[in-house]
Amino acid sequence: MTTVVVEKLDVFKTHPLGKYLRRGMIPHIWCTGCGYGILMGEFLRAIDELGLDPDKIVIVSGIGCISRIPGYLNLDGLHVTHGRAIAVATGVKLANPDLHVVVFGGDGDLFAIGGNHFIHAARRNIEMTVICGNNFNYGMTGGQVAPTTPLQGRTTTSPYGNLENPFNLVYLAAAAGATYVARWTAIHVKWLRESIKKALMKKGFSFIEYISPCPEYYGRRNRMRDPLDWMRWFKEKSVIMNGIDPAKAELSMDRIVVGEFVDYERPGYVELLKQLERRVQESLKKRGIRTHARL
């Protein structure tokens, strides 16, 4: 009798992206049909194709389904309080500007409880990338209404239909001052990857809205229980319109406008801080004093 030895495959070694995954944290907690795995994969392909030093990437997240991403990645990661990821990331970036700082957040995390931090980080044009997984509801807590839930959308806390107008996230980001703004869905994987690459290399505040299927929570109450319902919606109703005014970037059951809406240059916050520091120190030197403070 012969013994057949079956070697257990070590996916952390054999999968091309395995080196970016954290041992001991996989499998993930996401539901079947969730779109966040697609996003995480494209993010890893983006950093791989850019050849970024993984030691210099820091992922910060708040609370929500998508906020589990830093746990799964073999990169430095902080998983912090609900809504505060951008504020924590601001501290990280300013204390060490050499790091690529990336925030992953859900629509509720970034635009309800964390909305203030979002608009101010965009206004400052601080050099970081914020990727919002928009799944139209609070998935982690069981599917409650969110600032992105469509009008009349049914959730556990809008059982008779949502009365509140949803945010147009790309319009909000552009108005607040983001210098790179794009929106893609879970079927636009290649565009998404290219967009993430651009966002990572942007010398300013970059924002990507990623429309994700949520069959388990949003879908089950809105006749999209099958993951394929979502993919069909994205496929049939999406239209790529690069460069259009984000105010006109519609997101509805009838039409999903995707593309790159904003991409321009203005000085980033860290760059301006460095200039200020140089100016202040030169003035001390010139005047031969230790401080400008009146002590």
Binding site: L78, V80, V88, A89, T90, L94, N116, L276, T291, H292
Partner: peptide, 30 residues
């Protein structure tokens, strides 16, 4: 006034929630 003189960072945040959060990030960044 003082922090730029010594190579440090001063930032006025949007609120105290953000201020305290930024401290945690900065602390972890060294």
């Amino acid at each position: 006034v003082r922090l730029p003189e010594v190579g440090g960072v001063y930032i006025q945040m949007e609120d105290e929630l953000g201020s305290m959060a930024a401290l945690v990030g900065a602390s972890y960044a060294g």
